[in-house]
Amino acid sequence: MADRPTGGEVRVSGFSSQQTTERDLWKVRRRVGMVFQDFRLLPGRSALENVALVLEVTGTRRKAILPKANRLLDQVGLSTKVGALVEELSGGERQRVAIARALANDPYILLADEPTGNLDDRATRGILDLFWDINATGMVVLMATHDLELIRRYPDARLLELDQGKLVYDSATADVETP
C-alpha cells in the first residue's frame, strides 16, 4: 500500500501486488482504509479538512463532501471538534480523525498499524471500542499490535499471531501453535 513488497504477493479485493502497476495503485488504496500509529494527518488543517481531503481526492460531488465529512467525524465522536486544527487535538482525538478519514472512501477493509501505540490507556480503550463499533457495521478491521493484553480484553476478536513473518496462531481455528 505504502511500499511495494520485496517478496511474496499481497492480494486485496481482487488486486494483486504482482499485477497492479504503480499507475493503478490508487484503485487499491481507495478500497483500503488505513490508520497509523503517528496519525499522518495534515498539519495546519482542521479535522474536517483532513477528512474532506479524501473525499475531494476521490472525486466526491462538492455538495456531498462537507455533509459526509461531518457525518464521519460524528461517527467517531468528534462532532464538537470539526473545526479544530490538528495541532489543537489530543492524541486520541487525532487518531479518531485518522479513523474518520480512513472510513471516508467506504473501504472494504480498515487496516490499523499500531493505532494505539502513542495513546494513553483511556484513549486506547476508546479507539478499540470505536473499531469494534465499526466492525459491527460489517467492515473488516485488521489491527496490528504488540500488546497482547490489550487484545485479550476483546475475547470475541479474531486473533492472528505472526512470528518472523509466519502465522503461528489463529483463534478462529486454534489449530496452529498456541501462543
Binding site: W26, K27, R29, R30, R40, L53, V54
Partner: peptide, 9 residues
C-alpha cells in the same frame, strides 16, 4: 505521501 495513501491519482 498522505494524498497518495488516501488514493489520490
Amino acid at each position: 505521501y498522505i494524498m497518495r495513501l488516501v488514493g489520490a491519482r
